[in-house]
Design a protein around this nucleic acid. Structure first.
Length: 752
DNA sequence: CTAGGGTTAG
């Protein structure tokens, strides 16, 4: 059964072992196939225009010929036609050729651009209109206000409001609601409330906007109260409250209201279905999902492309890819393909992100490439998902190609895409590229900052993470739960105890965030790594977190680092009581005994582990050479070039010894964190992968190794010497962080 | 030709 595990800073995803990785050559040849970037084409790339009939074209030709643009009716007809067909340049042409223009024609043009999302142009047109002293009516004003809220232009919108009051425009409910919605979207809650009180006429839409606004600012009680007092609740009211509660309030309550709505006999509409399917995903409640699917079929809503897209998305998020694909396939066969309709694009996008969520990276790429070859628009949603797939694959080249593809398509890097890209470069080991993306992304939000801070943490740049964090707060951006995980991890990886403690207090006292397991683990790690084992113990007791096994595991790791057997015994006792037996605990304890030459006890722990039937994760390392991923385990002899690898490794170690590398095999082989060291003959997998990398890569590109456990002490030293001897950069990604070895030093400063 | 409500990221 596929499980969906959100990625956290604590553990890197076990990089997917894709046997025949990257579709890279395919993608690069697709890069060439893509149409050259062209603003007009890209903007309306996918929207299929309404078909203009031959008659219409004829009419247009005639109109140009005999100058009947003088006739307002003919001109407006053509204008509307082109506007609805998304042929904006044609609409504009007709408009420019007209000899006289009234409010109606202006409004038609304005609405055409608004519908296409060209908000900037709408505002320009609005200005032109006033310059020509044409007085906008309620229709025009509503459209303009909507643009203002999309652009978060509070100032301009307020100007429009003032203009309305000064010029005595007829103030109907619709215009009032437009204003209300504008204030809410621009987060000027005060003005919205004030306007709402003043409005002479309110309808259910007005109430719905206000209910939504209260939910947005987190005032659940008030919102529910308003909802309850509504004398006539229409579908939209139910939809508003359920959607708002799902996003900002208690999700349970959203679910309860959905049941109540159904029991009430309210007729559900397509929006209700969309919302409830999202609700299902957030609960991962597949049974409820199936029920809703049934209802959709019974009511015949399955003909609606949007609902089908929502169904696909729900199945993906609940980990039922087979079901998602079933709906997806039927979409085309049962109803015919609506080429590049929004529904179609959303469905593809959901499938791609579904594969990514479920860790099926190869399938995600297969879907993505077939999407491109079928010339389906690759929108920002899809692109964001596929970048996240690259992050999980850990293959840098693949990520770079996708990044190039995005630039080719011409997508602007917004906060969503930016965070994905930063995360991708971060997890693929290129700190520089992550920093570049960060610098180039204009509208930075918390998530983007958090991605960058976490990236620094992952690469051991503690000071830089702290600097970014301080800078972010000075910019007035509020850190959230995840931001603190990032900055605390950075502190623990870099030994910044004082800062770490300060931020932990800041989080609780100033930002009122309740620490979670991840935050506590960071703190335990922070004290523990620094060798303050008694403080660690106190911290655990003071915070009442001795039921969290992650915390104890981190503590045990620190005991090994500082070779404190007494403490380690005590900690593993606690740990083994708490969790289902985990190999890591036994091996860690056994290795701690071994470091003190207490072989008997070490062996005892290991046989205890075996008798309890605990299976260990074999240590694995992999390296990508060309389009192939090569995987190694300790003492591996299965590789076709195994003789060459071992011969080279022997030679290399000999030369390393000459420059000071020493390894007491007996001790070294035991001194491993989570890996057993009983095989004296073998080498750890990361050494094998490194050796293979050196002999098969002729260029001076850095050697990138990935490992599913932590790098051991000896291998760490080995890498340092190798980087010096060969003047070669080695980048190792282990389960917790990256190590950049360069000229005999590691970026972690040996503090790991 | 006009108002509210549904898919992306750390």
């Amino acid at each position: 059964m596929p499980t969906i595990t959100p990625l956290t800073m604590q553990t890197l995803p076990r990089a997917a072992v894709i046997k025949c990785v990257p579709k890279s050559p395919q993608i690069s040849c697709l890069l060439k196939k893509l149409p050259p970037f062209n603003f007009h084409q890209c903007k309306f790339y996918s929207r299929q225009p309404l078909l203009l009939s031959a008659n219409d074209s004829l009419l247009h030709a005639k109109a140009i010929k005999n100058g009947s643009f003088q006739n307002l009716d003919v001109a407006s007809y053509l204008l509307r036609l082109y506007g609805k067909s998304k042929c904006l340049s044609d609409a504009r042409k007709v408009f420019d050729e007209m000899s006289q223009r009234d409010v109606r024609t202006w409004t038609i043009l304005v609405s055409s651009f608004a519908r296409a999302g060209s908000n900037g142009i709408v505002l320009e047109l609005f200005r032109d209109m006033q310059n020509e002293t044409v007085k906008p009516n309620q229709f025009t004003l509503s459209i303009v206000l909507k643009c203002c809220s999309s652009l978060s232009e509070l100032r301009i919108g307020k100007g429009v409001h003032g203009w309305i009051l000064r010029n005595g425009v007829v103030f109907d409910v619709v215009l009032g609601n437009s204003l209300l919605d504008f204030y809410v979207k621009c987060e000027d809650f005060g003005s919205a409330k004030w306007l709402f009180e003043l409005m002479e006429e309110r309808n259910s839409v007005s109430w719905n906007i206000m209910i939504g606004a209260h939910l947005n600012i987190g005032d659940v009680e008030k919102a529910v109260d308003m909802f309850r007092r509504l004398s006539s609740k229409d579908v939209a009211s139910w939809n508003t409250i359920i959607d708002g509660l799902m996003r900002n309030g208690p999700k349970r309550m959203a679910l309860e209201l959905l049941y109540e709505m159904v029991k009430n006999g309210t007729v559900l509409d397509e929006v209700t279905f969309s919302i409830s399917l999202v609700l299902v995903s957030s609960f991962m409640d597949i049974e409820l999902g199936k029920q809703i699917h049934g209802r959709v079929l019974r009511l015949g809503f399955h003909v609606d492309g949007f609902i089908r897209a929502s169904l696909i998305d729900m199945y993906c998020k609940c980990g039922k890819m087979e079901m998602a694909l079933e709906v997806f396939k039927r979409m085309n066969s049962d109803f015919g393909r609506k080429e590049n309709s929004i529904e179609e694009i959303v469905s593809w996008s959901s499938i791609v992100s579904g594969f990514v969520l479920n860790g099926e990276i190869e399938d995600a790429f297969k879907t993505f490439t077939s999407m491109i070859s079928k010339e389906i628009e690759v929108d920002r949603f899809t692109v964001t998902s596929i970048v996240s797939a690259c992050a999980n694959s850990g293959v840098l080249e693949l990520g770079q190609q996708v990044h190039a593809l995005i630039q080719k398509i011409g997508h602007r890097v917004d906060a969503h895409l930016g965070s994905s890209l930063i995360d991708m470069y971060s997890k693929c080991g290129s700190l520089d590229d992550a920093q570049m993306v960060f610098k180039q992304t204009n509208d930075k939000n918390v998530v983007l900052w958090t991605s960058m801070i976490s990236c620094c943490a992952l690469h051991g740049q503690g000071r830089e993470a702290v600097r970014l964090f301080e800078f972010m707060m000075s910019e007035g951006i509020k850190p959230n739960v995840v931001t603190f995980i990032g900055v605390l991890t950075a502190c623990s990886h870099a030994g910044l105890i004082e800062e770490g403690c300060r931020y932990f207090r800041l989080m609780k006292e100033v930002y009122g965030i309740k620490p979670g397991v991840d935050h506590y683990s960071c703190m335990v790690d922070l004290y523990g790594r620094a060798g303050q084992l008694n403080e660690t113990k106190n911290f655990i007791h003071e915070n009442g977190i001795d039921h969290m096994s992650a915390v104890w595991r981190s503590f045990l790791s620190s005991c090994r680092l500082h070779r404190d057997i007494k403490m380690a015994e005590w900690v593993s006792e606690k740990l083994l009581h708490l969790e289902p037996p985990d190999a890591g605990t036994y091996i860690l304890l056994s290795n701690i005994y071994a470091t003190k030459q207490r072989w008997e006890e070490a062996a005892e722990v290991r046989s205890l582990m075996q008798s309890r039937g605990v299976k260990k994760h074999p240590g694995q390392s992999w390296i990508q050479i060309k389009n192939q991923v090569h995987t190694f385990v300790m003492g591996d002899r299965s590789h076709p070039q195994t003789d060459k690898i071992y011969a080279y490794l022997d030679k290399l170690i000999g030369r390393l010894r000459e420059i000071g590398y020493s390894s007491d095999t007996k001790l070294v082989m035991q001194d491993v964190e989570e890996e057993q060291g009983e095989m004296l003959l073998g080498f750890h997998s990361e050494k094998l992968a490194t050796a293979y990398g050196i002999i098969s890569m002729t260029s001076q590109k850095p050697i990138r190794i990935m490992k599913n456990l932590r790098v051991c002490n000896d291998c760490h030293t080995f890498m340092k010497y190798t980087s010096q001897l060969l003047d070669r950069e080695i980048i190792v990604r282990d389960i917790r962080r990256f190590h950049h070895f360069k000229r005999g030093c590691c970026s972690c400063g040996d503090y790991w």
